[in-house]
Design a protein around this nucleic acid. Sequence first.
RNA 1: GGCGGGUUAGCAAAGAGGUUAUGCAGCGGAUUGCAAAUCCGUUUAGAGCGGUUCGAUUCCGCUACCCGCCUCCA
Length: 457
Amino acid sequence: MPLQLFDTWTRSVREFTPLKPGEVGLYTCGPTVYDYQHIGNYRTFLFEDGLKRVLKLNGYRVNHVMNITDVGHLVSDGDDGEDKMEKGSRRTGKSAWDIAALYTESFVGDLKALGIEFPTTLCKATDNIPEQIAFVQEIEKKGYSYRTSDGIYFDTSKQASYGYLGRLDIAGLQAGARVDLGEKKNATDYALWKFSTPDEKRQMEWDSPWGRGFPGWHIECSAMAHRYLGEYFDIHCGGEDHITVHHPNEISQTEAAYGTRLANFWMHGYFLITNDAKMSKSSGEFLRVQLLLGKGYDPIAYRYLCLTAHYRTQMNFSWEALDAAQTGLARLRTAVHALGEPTTPDAAFVARLIDILNEDLNFPQALALMHEALKSDLPAPVKKATLLKFDEAFGLGLAIWVPLVVEAPAAVRAIADARWAARNAKDWAEADRLRGELTALGWAMKDGKEGYALGKG
RNA sequence: GGCGGGUUAGCAAAGAGGUUAUGCAGCGGAUUGCAAAUCCGUUUAGAGCGGUUCGAUUCCGCUACCCGCCUCCA
C-alpha cells in the first residue's frame, strides 16, 4: 500500500507523493530555547522522527530542516509583552545568548537520549536575520504590511484565504476578541518586525530598513523554510497548537511573498496530557528527560510509550504507564538480544509492517505486529533480522543494545559465594539469610544450573 | 461564548458492522529447596439513552462528562 498521511490542510488522509521523485523536503518547528523542553514537547519531536523513519522505509531521502527559535518569541498575548529570551535572561542572570546556547545544548542532548535522528539542517533564527528582513521586504513590496508605532504588521484582511488551515472563523474572532487591538487593524494581524523601545536596551537587536529591532516570531520559519527548502516543499510539521495561529501565519507570509501555501502536507502531533490537563511550562509538573533519568527510567522507555499511542490522539501520561513501557521494552530487548546473529528479514512480516505504517503511521498496531513476530515460529536468525528491520521504524536501538554487566564489589561477591556454598550444602536457612543481606545491599542473586548471576536491584 | 476532538477492561492504548488487538498489572501452571528471571495458559471492555441492521463497542441522533484551540504554547 502506498504511503497515506493525514493532512491538516484537507483534514483527510491522502496519498503522499513527493514533489521531487525520491526526495522529501520536511520542515519541523523546533524549540524556543528560553528554558528546558519537557517530555510533552518531545512527543511531537518523536512523532516527526517516526514520520522520517517511515519515509525512509518507503525509499525516500529526507531533507529535514528544524529551526531553533532563539529570538522574537513573545511571552504574552497579541504582539505585546516581553521576548522570552530576554525574560529568561532576567530569570537566570545569564545573557540571552548564553541562555540560547545552554538550552540548545540541552535540547540536542535530549534528542540523542531519545534516539531521535538529527535533522539535516538545524538552523537558528539569529543566524538568519538578513533572510527574515528580505522576506518582510518581499511582503512589503507585495503590499501586505503596514507600520504602527511599535512595528511592522501583516494585514490579514488582504488575504481572503487567511486562516484556512485552522478553519478560522475570522468574523467570530473579531467579534469575540479578548485582546486589545492597539494599533493593529485586525485581531488576526501579527508582527513581522518589532521595534526596540528607546527606554529599554535589548540584548538581541538588529538594524533593519524599518529601524532597530527584532523579527516577529512567525517570520523565522517562513524565511528559513524558504532558504533551505524553497518556495514549496513536501511536509511541514508541528504541534497541534500551531494549527490555529503559527502555521496559518507562516502560510499567509509565504502566500503573500511567493504565492504558495508553503507545504503540500501539514501534519500535527497531538499533546501529552497529565492529570487531565495539557502539559505546559507555565503550569503543573515540568517533566524533563533529566527527571526521568533521575527516577531511573531509560529515555527510550518514554519513546516506547509514545509509540503505543497514535500521533493524532492526545496521550495520557502517568508513571504507571511509563513503568509498563519500561518493563515491556526491557523484555523486548532481552528477547531480541537472545536471538543471536541476524540473517535476512522475513519478507511477509516486513510487508505487513510497511502496510500498517503507511496507513498514517499506525505505530501502535505496528508495535502489536512486532510482538506477533517475536512470538512467531520464525527461525531465530530470520526473526532477529525481522525485528531489527522493524526497529528501523521504531528507533528503540535494539541492534546496539547489550545487557548491562555490573561488576559486583568483592564484599558482595564474598556473600554470594557463601550463599552459593550454603545452597549447595542444602543449608536453606543460611542461604536465605545471606540472600537477605544481598538484597539489603541492593543486589539480586539469580541461581542457575552452573552458577549464579548477580544483578543490581 | 465560538470552533474542534474524545469517552474501550486495574493502567496505557489500537483495529474492525459478525472472527484473539497489543503491552503492563492480576490470576493459574511449568521451572526453582524457596525465590528471581524465563516460558505456557488465562480473567476483567467500549459513558448513558434511542435509532438503522439478521447482527453495533464499531454507523446515525440526543444527553452527560472530559480535553484542546480561540491568549505564550510541541
